[in-house]
Amino acid sequence: MSLTNNYHIAVPTAFHENENLNVDATLEHIRFLEKLGVNSVLLCASTGEQHSLNLSEKIELIESLESLESLDVSSDFEILFGISSIRQIEAEQLASKISRVPQISSVLIGYPPYILPTQKEALNYTTSIIERVNKQAVIYNNPLRTGFDLSIQSYKDLINNHYISGIKEAGNPQKISELNEVIDSPLIYFAGGEKDLEKKICLGYNGLSSITGNLYPLEVKQRFDSLLKKEDTQDYNLLKNKIDKLFEDSPLPIIKSEISKIENINFGICRTPLGN
């Protein structure tokens, strides 16, 4: 089974004013997006918040997804969940928990920040998670955030030996061109956000993981689809101005504030220092 959606929205995590986890508001936002026509979301990744969540908080989020009936989304709605930890044993525990939750379609495996594993250590870390989760996996390489850069050879080793359905490469975009030359498996190559999206698609990216989609879900998807089809006829200036404005400052506090206003929910704050 492979991922059916090449576009997902990386949803932020809601917190109360005391910075405690707010599961209900997080799920409300997911339901809002699904009702608009969004088909896939990514939790606990790509917003920089997951490293502030401890293991029990991540498990609480996972357990909230165990009933699609209570979540109130369609049966074909795709949920991806991020796994990354500075402690491999905790990543493994999270993977084991996710393996028993059929509502989670796939995991996005990121690398721990700061500790700078070797390529061999990173491969062992990734393999250990994949073997426990028993689901399709997307590999997330983000050297700017982690200080670690997965090599082309390591990518090849993982793809040749495990079921990898996608890659989210936030480092050198030229890697996608290189991978396309040496990998036969059909993969979704996710761009992390809309920056330089047109150039990335020319290099072989065919997927989008969007944070700005939390506020402009259908507009971002329409823009992305038109670029993939090489039918870029829509007026992008209005959306571009909105996105540029969003990134003039720290975007996550602004996104959370706008979610609260648009959806009439209390999505809360970021965990400081974000939002200071």
Rank of each mutant, 00 (worst) to 15 (best):
K221P: 05
P253R: 11
I254S: 13
L227N: 02
I254R: 15
K229A: 14
N237M: 09
L228W: 03
Y216Q: 02
D244H: 05
K221V: 04
K230F: 06
Y216G: 00
R223G: 01
K221I: 06
G213T: 03
Y236F: 10
I211G: 02
I211A: 02
L246F: 05
N237E: 10
F224Q: 05
D235F: 14
D232L: 14
L246G: 05
L239G: 06
Q222P: 00
L252G: 09
I211S: 01
L239N: 07
L246H: 05
D235Q: 10
L239E: 08
L228E: 03
L215M: 03
S210M: 02
L215S: 06
N237S: 15
E248Q: 14
I254G: 00
I211N: 04
I211E: 02
P217W: 06
K229M: 11
N214D: 04
K242E: 10
L238M: 08
K245P: 00
I243L: 01
N241K: 13
V220R: 08
I211P: 00
Q234I: 15
K229P: 00
L238S: 11
D249C: 08
K221S: 09
L239S: 07
D232Y: 14
Y236M: 12
K240N: 12
D235M: 08
Y236V: 15
V220W: 08
E248D: 10
K221Q: 14
D232G: 15
E219V: 06
L218F: 11
K242P: 00
T233D: 13
N241R: 14
N214T: 03
P251S: 09
E219L: 14
P251G: 04
F224R: 04
D249A: 15
K242S: 09
L215H: 08
Y216C: 00
L239Q: 10
T233N: 12
T233G: 08
P253I: 11
